[in-house]
Amino acid sequence: MEKREGQHTQIKTVMSSKDEILTRIRQTVRTRYDMPEIKPDFMAYGDKTARFIEVSESVGGRVVIAGKGEDINDIIRSLYPAAKTIASNIPEITAATFNPDETETPYALDGTDLAVVRGETGVAENGAVWIAQNVKEKALYFIAEYLVILLDAEKIVHNMHEAYRQIQLNDYGFGLFISGPSKTADIEQALVTGAHGAKGVTVILTSTV
């Protein structure tokens, strides 16, 4: 019996910070509040694509609709005629000058003029595109001077509630919403694009139909 008590005190003295924090919370919380019922069945935009384009442009992005039978590579070349190093791991993107997945380290991606990647879900309310990491090094999304995201026009949802019901992470364990180019207003609130990431982002809407 005595021995047991002794053991108990010993455990107490070596209580980890984790246990200390959790114990303190358990001791201090007086009222436990219920989770509110969340029913996000809001605003069906009449035209999701139109709203997506409008908001994307308002945040400094650009949206191009690929016409039926139009070659995406032609669109890319005409949008970025000066791009010399174009990275893409999408087989159909023949405009690419290299496959970023074949580089050894993320550092080798420095100097990429343009990256072409695929987006999964577009969000009409804020012009964001969800990408679950689909290149070997996520650095590509940020280090390329310009970014092109291919998005199936059918994959545009109304809002973030809808988006979060759909999105998933894969084995890379990283994913993000991108809405327009990298930007800052840290100097006198003057908006400047191209803070650290892409100086420009173009979403090319494709149609599978």
Partner: peptide, 12 residues
């Protein structure tokens, strides 16, 4: 702004 330019999810 309607959303930040980047909303990144770090899981692994």
């Amino acid at each position: 702004q309607p959303v930040t330019a980047y909303t990144s999810h770090y899981r692994k």
